[in-house]
């Protein structure tokens, strides 16, 4: 920052100290502060530089003010919330969908439990998802039982395999979209 322009020795020293003091500040903030102050010191002789530096203040105080005012890295600014990880809803969707086939009934129930304990879903979302998944499961089981031993047995098996798959893929996508959203009024 202090390498461009025409600066007196005290100005260069001041800008170097300021740059070091601002090392932890967000890059855009650091650049704006350094640019602004460099502009004020550019072209001043040694005496004028010292006078201006006295007005600008201690670089450490400027950095402390910046640290106090600026949001720390990782802390979202107001109105700009941090992104929420989709890992949990993705896992729940996979368990719900694949559980039906990999560990029949038990795996699917585990998926329902994951939906029930997911704290970043609104209660309405959890209920609606569970209702759709259970309804699909009941249709699948009914088709399997009703068509067992008849000529329609392959159709019953197809319904048993496909209806939960389609319903749970739909529910999984819905759950991923709704994760972390505020509860509707």
């Amino acid at each position: 920052m202090s390498s461009t322009g025409s600066f007196s020795p005290s100005s260069r020293r001041y800008l170097d100290e300021l740059e070091s003091a601002l090392a932890a500040a967000p890059a855009a903030l650091r650049a704006d502060i350094l640019t602004d102050i460099a502009d004020e010191l550019n072209g001043l002789d040694e005496d004028a530089s010292r006078a201006r530096i006295a007005v600008l203040g201690d670089p450490r105080a400027i950095a402390a003010d910046a640290a106090a005012e600026a949001p720390a890295p990782g802390i979202p600014a107001p109105g700009n919330p941090a992104p929420v990880s989709k890992a949990y809803p993705t896992a729940a969707a996979i368990v719900l969908t694949a559980g039906w086939y990999v560990v029949p009934i038990v795996g699917w129930i585990a998926g329902l439990v994951m939906i029930g304990v997911g704290k970043l879903w609104a209660p309405q979302v959890r209920v609606a998802s569970a209702v759709v998944s259970v309804a699909a499961a009941l249709v699948a089981l009914a088709a399997l039982l009703v068509m067992r031993g008849t000529d329609l047995w392959p159709l019953g098996l197809a319904v048993f395999l496909l209806v939960p798959l389609i319903a749970n893929i739909f529910v999984g996508g819905y759950l991923r979209r709704q994760w972390g959203l505020p509860t509707p009024a």
């Binding site: 600008l56 402390a64 910046a66 005012e69």
Partner: peptide, 18 residues
């Protein structure tokens, strides 16, 4: 009211974000 650049620029950035 003696502000420093360290106080002003975070405010300007916030006002710009808003």
């Amino acid at each position: 009211m003696q502000w420093t650049d360290g106080m002003l620029y975070p405010l300007l950035h916030r006002l710009e974000r808003l």
